[in-house]
């Protein structure tokens, strides 16, 4: 069966529909079948639906995503209550240890990402991975910093990523590789993303899964959960009425 490639982190800078459409067209051209577009928390559902229809026309399946950047663990819980049922994907930017720990154990969080390039502020260690492995959260790696940084900062980032990937593999936390870009020129083909993953010791097969199987599985699971008939994993309402 043909693989579907996915990029779950496209973040248009000014959220203009023309920019979003340009990113979708580029994604389709590069061979992606599924992309997740980042929206603000207050976006109207009609806007998401409109973009989804445009994506369908272009030939890309569009999923809605929100990135939470909570200051504290309590902020995270409050944000999750508000947005979880509105978006297909919830990513948490882990800027502090308390937020990272809470995000890793909360089953409403789909992806953990660590935007800081400072290794002291990247909290994906063994404890974090163990919590994530008992929950459903995946470890997301954005490739944008690898493209825009150079010199010592890129070297340090690669070193951190290498350690985090090893920890992730050890605890069986799924890895998702995304672009995290807002400009078309920084978008890369899925196989190019997999090639870049070799820089932090992710084997080719695992890297290809990280741009196809793993992200597709997250979207599939969440769409099932958000569907009206969903009761629990594997159980769904198929008919309602007096004769049931």
């Amino acid at each position: 069966m043909k693989r579907t490639f996915a990029d779950l982190h496209l973040c248009p800078e000014n959220r203009k529909s023309e920019d979003m459409i340009r990113l979708l067209e580029k994604a389709s051209e590069l061979g992606y079948g599924l992309v997740a577009m980042t929206f603000g928390q207050s976006v109207a559902l009609a806007e998401i639906e409109k973009l989804r229809k445009t994506g369908k026309h272009i030939g890309v399946d569009v999923a809605s995503r929100v990135d939470l950047k909570p200051g504290t663990a309590d902020d995270l819980l409050r944000d999750l209550r508000r947005v979880r049922r509105k978006f297909e994907l919830v990513g948490v930017s882990c800027d502090s240890k308390s937020v990272s720990r809470q995000a890793a154990k909360d089953r409403r969080v789909d992806m953990l990402f660590f935007p800081s390039i400072d290794f002291r502020r990247r909290f994906f260690d063994g404890a974090e991975a163990e919590l994530a492995s008992t929950g459903v959260a995946s470890f997301e790696i954005d490739l944008r910093p690898l493209l825009v940084l150079n010199g010592p900062s890129r070297i340090r980032l690669l070193s951190s990523l290498r350690k985090e990937v090893a920890v992730s593999k050890h605890f069986g936390v799924p890895i998702i590789i995304s672009s995290g870009v807002s400009e078309e020129l920084l978008m890369r083909k899925p196989m190019e993303m997999a090639a870049l993953a070799s820089l932090f010791d992710l084997k080719q097969e695992a890297a290809i899964d990280a741009v196809s199987k793993n992200p597709v599985a997250v979207i599939k699971r969440n769409r099932e959960k958000l569907s009206p008939g969903f009761v629990a994993p594997g159980i769904r309402i198929i008919r309602k009425g007096s004769d049931c």
Binding site: L30, L146, L147, V148, E183, L185, L186, M187, R188, K189, M191, E192, M193, A195, L196, S198, L199, Q204
Partner: peptide, 23 residues
């Protein structure tokens, strides 16, 4: 081959102008 693919994917500029190279 893997080294060259990674290097090509990491290219963001040619002659100080934004660029991308796709295989």
């Amino acid at each position: 081959l893997d080294m060259v693919r990674a290097a090509l994917a990491s290219m963001t500029q040619i002659r100080d102008k934004p660029a991308a190279v796709h295989v």
